[in-house]
Design a protein around this nucleic acid. Structure first.
Lengths: 149, 149
DNA sequence: AAGTCAAAAGTCAAACAAGGTCAAACCTGA
DNA sequence: TCAGGTTTGACCTTGTTTGACTTTTGACTT
């Protein structure tokens, strides 16, 4: 496993089932012997909004970084549908984050998560023209199905 | 024996009776003194779905290639995978039948059924070239996801 | 109250570390 | 001989790690 993922796991384990944690970028970087900016990398790739986190930070003496896990909104699904109505294409990364978000919020089960991720993966769509548009279509249909259940 | 077959045998012997192995493309290539892309050749000719393997990979630092041997073909899911490995296209009505069979056998839940049907529906794939091939791809990925859970 | 400064955190691009693709060259057995 | 499988290498894409430089902020002077 790479260091970024270890740091992610570490943060998640300290967070436990809580929904907020404050940490020091420099301390964390030192603890893992990496460049401080690596912490930013971890935050921006692993603790994104679409994965259900908000990152707040303050610079200067006594500053720090706070991660907040946001509660699963009741109609995340229709929120995502609305979100999709405003774009033409859906890149794989973004789709993945959206699905993770549903899982995070317990709007879907582990298995459903795996199934949906598989269905909108680059692998599944490989060879297709305009895969971004297609992925959006597929995901929209899936969201509609979820909403009806 | 050619080098590709030797590499195949080597991988199989390391895999032994296990059903999963992770390897490094570069290391393996170096070990056999071949071009790294030869490993891709071996994977794509020897470790195919129809021979009972799925290949996953990740690029970048900490990346690697994982081979998974799929179950012998007793259960419905791997049976369907095998079935699909023998065709190029999957029309919507046939996909629907296959999904219904899974639901019938309780291999998937009601919601999973709805999600999968949505994902492989004509509606979702509307506008795509070669929707039959695409649908087959998507359904294969979904089956693989189901199998791994 | 204003100025200074060190202690945070942020940004960004380059380097590094995988794996992927594709086509040309190369074998080899009917 | 020649078609099909094999081997190689040049170039591509994605994900990670590092470091130099910038910005913000609170505490401490004056």
């Amino acid at each position: 496993m790479n260091i970024s993922s270890e740091i992610e796991q570490f943060i998640l384990s300290v967070l436990g089932s809580g929904d907020e944690i404050t940490l020091s970028r420099n301390e964390l970087a030192q603890y893992f012997s990496v460049a401080p900016s690596q912490i930013n990398y971890v935050l921006s790739t692993r603790f994104t909004l679409s994965r259900g986190f908000i990152v707040k930070s303050k610079r200067g003496g006594g500053g720090g970084i706070t991660l907040v896990r946001i509660a699963g909104g009741e109609d995340l699904v229709s929120g995502q549908l609305k979100e999709l109505s405003e774009t033409d294409i859906l890149p794989e990364n973004r789709a993945r984050d959206m699905v993770e978000r549903l899982a995070e919020a317990k709007a879907i089960t582990e298995r459903e998560r795996a199934v949906i991720l598989a269905g909108v993966s680059d692998k599944a769509l490989e060879g297709a023209e305009e895969s971004g548009r297609l992925r959006r279509n597929i995901y929209i249909e899936i969201l509609i199905a979820l909403m009806r259940k």
